[in-house]
Simulated scan of single mutants.
Amino acid sequence: MARLSKDDARLHRQARQLVALARDLTDEEIDFVFEHYQESQNPGHGLDGAFFTPEDLAFDLTVEVGGDRLIDLCAGIGRIASLAAHPAAPHRAGRAPSEIVCVERDPEYVRVGRKLVPQAQWIEADVLALPPGLGGFDTAFGNPPFGGLARSANPTAYTGALFEYHVIAVAARLADSGVFLIPQPSAPVRHSGLVRPVRQHNGPYGRFTRETGLKLTSSSIDTATHARAWRGVSPRVEVVVCDYASARRATQAGRRPVTAPACPAVIGR
């Protein structure tokens, strides 16, 4: 675990104490936990590649999240979900969604998330081995772990190593659209923090789109303005959008498959 300053350690303890309370938390207390709960103090932090999305970047991402039924994949403690479900969020028109589901495999994050986003249905599960019955969502979204992490399964047509692409491909079965925060090298276009956009249709993205039939569109959000707000890392990232409904229509028209068979093939961790 990373060492915290005395002040950060004290605030983290206070956040955990709030989560442990038997009563519901106030809005101010929820904000306090989101701000001061330190993911670096969770034993699985390094292995899972969990770095929580900075608040302002999470809010910017919700500009792309629409619809009445939402699912957050790799939800952490629910920062993005809490903002996407807020009646004041973009596309919400003052009304909360009818359903929001958060999927997270770390039991500690699920415990905290249930306290911070109680209106969500929390599912403790590996995003690559989801329980049956999920689907019909308007938008799937999230900040999945990046890179070549160990996986429990290969449930889609994508055969590469990048975890973020596996999550995006899984979401094609769940929702009509997807909005995800991914590393800049994995996006079709790099533009955040750059003077001129750089297209990169070959390499990792080229493999992903060839194997899955899915195409990603880069959002206009400049994530570079939030680079210093991350804790413990300063990744270059992009927000990407995927129109799964259009991809499914193409599949139904007999053009090409979007994903592989529904049953995941288990692989070694």
Rank of each mutant, 00 (worst) to 15 (best):
R3F: 07
S5V: 01
K6D: 14
D7G: 08
D8N: 08
A9N: 10
R10C: 00
L11K: 13
H12P: 07
Q14T: 00
Q14M: 11
L18D: 00
R23M: 11
R23P: 03
D24P: 12
L25N: 10
I30S: 06
E35A: 02
N42W: 04
H45Q: 14
H45S: 10
G49M: 11
G49R: 07
T53V: 05
D56A: 14
F59T: 05
V63Q: 06
G66L: 00
I71H: 04
A75P: 12
R79Y: 00
A81I: 13
L83H: 15
A85K: 09
A85W: 02
H86Y: 10
P87G: 03
G94C: 05
E99H: 02
I100E: 05
E104A: 11
R105S: 04
Y109L: 12
R111W: 05
G113F: 09
K115Y: 14
L116R: 01
P118V: 09
Q119K: 13
A125Y: 02
V127F: 15
L128S: 14
P132H: 12
G136D: 10
F137H: 05
A140Y: 01
A140D: 09
P145K: 08
G148E: 13
G148I: 13
G148H: 12
A150S: 10
A153V: 05
A153G: 14
P155D: 03
Y158A: 01
Y158D: 04
Y158M: 14
T159F: 07
A161W: 09
L162Q: 09
E164P: 03
S177G: 10
F180W: 08
F180N: 01
F180K: 00
L181H: 04
P183Y: 08
S186N: 10
S192N: 11
S192T: 05
P197H: 04
R207Y: 00
E211L: 14
L214C: 00
L214Y: 14
S218I: 01
H226L: 11
W230N: 01
G232I: 11
V233N: 02
V237N: 12
E238N: 03
V239D: 00
C242Q: 06
D243M: 06
A245V: 01
A250F: 08
T251L: 12
V258N: 13
